[in-house]
């Protein structure tokens, strides 16, 4: 018999090697141009319409303000990054555990899902004062807010991934005498990884939101605190500098997890293309 050779897939369907860098650059071009255009229009609009700096500073003056206070800014940024990542890590660990429980067990799903929805519907900003009462002003409320806000997408995605595993591969393994643990590690877990990694991208940016919310409300360190202080002294360029900095950190971490996702679960996307 003749093996059906699929002509269309002679092009690198497995790991692309040569030219990957160039195609990567090409893919980078549109977003980089869009961002550049955004800042250019912002800058030009401010100058053209002579918008006062205390209403809308130019991006260049915002960056200049960051530079001016670089050592302090760096300290605040590091604080925000730390609380964000700690909260995010907590969200990943607990989200994975709860997501696995909910995704694998129908009863747990039915029992816990309404509670989770209700919990997620609470505006996290409303919880910050409570957290401050419990834990005092500082890093802990920021970590917990970051955790609370980024926890839900991880749970939902992991649970969805596990709950939607097709029965056939599981049946094949069970019929072969596989233990439930083997079925989990060989089928359910790899099958739900794309969902998990997709949730990480969302969760890490949300974690930043959580940290900043908490810092704005009550903290003594972090970008949120810096923005509050700058705003109270009408250093509006520094406020916007803080916004830019948080945004940049968010994009950076998003990119990190996008790369991790592509590395770990490329098969899920390639299989759709072929």
């Amino acid at each position: 018999m003749t093996p059906e050779v699929l002509q269309a897939e002679k092009v690198p369907a497995t790991a692309p090697q040569a030219g990957a860098f160039q195609t990567g650059l090409k893919a980078m071009l549109p977003p980089v141009l869009t961002i550049a255009a955004f800042f250019l229009i912002w800058e030009l609009a401010c100058r053209l319409f002579r918008i006062p700096a205390f209403i809308l500073p130019t991006p260049s003056s915002s960056v200049a303000a960051l530079m001016q206070f670089a050592p302090a800014v760096a300290e605040h940024a590091l604080q925000t990054l730390t609380t964000t990542l700690l909260g995010f890590a907590l969200a990943v660990v607990l989200g994975l555990a709860l997501g696995a429980l909910v995704g694998l067990n129908r009863t747990a799903y039915q029992a816990l899902y309404p509670l989770l929805i209700g919990f997620n519907a609470v505006p996290k900003a409303a919880l910050v004062p409570v957290l401050v009462i419990w834990f005092g002003v500082g890093a802990v409320p920021a970590i917990l807010t970051a955790f609370l806000i980024s926890f839900f997408p991880v749970v939902v995605n992991v649970a969805t991934g596990l709950a939607t595993v097709e029965p056939e591969p599981r049946d094949v393994l069970r019929a072969l005498g596989a233990t439930p643990w083997e079925v989990f590690t060989k089928v359910s877990l790899p099958r739900s990884l794309p969902y998990f990694f997709a949730s990480l991208k969302v969760a890490v940016t949300l974690a930043f939101v959580g940290s900043i919310i908490s810092e704005l409300a009550a903290s003594n360190k972090g970008i949120g605190v810096m923005m509050n202080q700058a705003a109270s002294t009408f250093q509006v360029p520094l406020v916007f500098g803080g916004v830019l900095l948080v945004s940049a950190m968010g994009v950076l971490l998003y990119a990190v997890f996008a790369v991790v996702e592509a590395r770990m679960t490329g098969w899920a996307y390639r299989s759709q293309n072929s």
């Binding site: 019929a175 072969l176 098969w267």
Partner: peptide, 18 residues
């Protein structure tokens, strides 16, 4: 009971994509 002495093939190939 599943002992591994059985070979099984369903209609849907159900190969693991990864």
């Amino acid at each position: 009971r599943p002992t591994g002495q059985v070979g099984i093939a369903f209609q849907n190939p159900s190969l693991l994509l990864w």
